[in-house]
């Protein structure tokens, strides 16, 4: 039993060292108006995605989303990014999500609900905020946990890096 676990973990670690980044898992989420949407559908328009897990009760998440809301119009022009924010508010606070985001003027973001944490679990998110940059092919390009003022610069740099990478591959 122990040997098997050690062997498995060892191989996994070995694999990670030369492995590809993992792809967006397929999970059904809800939109604010009650439609079901699969996470894979987010990739349909071929844009890079900035994916952020947050909740109405999470203070640094709100700081992060406020910051991004101000920068989003410029980022869209420069990097073609689509910002998708996934609320992990459960039934207790889920009804607050729509009034919360609309009153703050975050309505440019794609807002999704993950009330039982299915997507959060599948993405291995332990603490929020936790954000990912996802390539148009679904592969994870970069991720970051927590938010401190200034992190937006790091996110922006990574988005530019991805854009440069995508531009070179499309030229080939």
């Amino acid at each position: 039993m122990k040997k098997i676990i050690v062997l498995t973990l060892g191989l996994i670690l070995l694999n990670i060292s030369f492995a590809q980044q993992f792809t967006l898992p397929s999970v059904d989420l809800k939109t604010l108006d009650g439609k079901t949407i699969n996470t894979r559908d987010l990739l349909k328009d071929g844009k890079p995605i900035f994916l952020d897990f947050w909740a109405t009760w999470c203070k640094p998440c709100i700081v992060e989303l406020n910051t991004l809301a101000d920068l989003y119009p410029d980022w869209q022009d420069e990097t073609d990014v689509k910002i998708v924010v996934v609320s992990i508010d459960d039934a207790r606070t889920q009804s607050r999500v729509a009034p919360f985001v609309n009153s703050r003027g975050w309505d440019d973001f794609t807002i999704l609900l993950d009330p039982n944490g299915d997507f959060k679990r599948a993405m291995n998110v332990i603490n929020i905020p936790h954000s990912f940059i996802i390539q148009p092919n679904g592969k994870i390009f970069w991720q970051h946990t927590g938010f401190a003022p200034g992190d937006e610069q790091e996110i922006y740099n990574q988005l530019l890096k991805l854009k440069a990478q995508l531009d070179t591959t499309s030229k080939k």
Binding site: A91, S95, R96, A98, P99, N102, S103, G105
Partner: peptide, 17 residues
């Protein structure tokens, strides 16, 4: 029984539960 009713627009939100 559980219910919530809300109304929101840019800059304004109201929710009852």
């Amino acid at each position: 029984t559980y219910m919530s009713v809300s109304y929101s627009k840019t800059g304004f939100g109201l929710v009852f539960t």
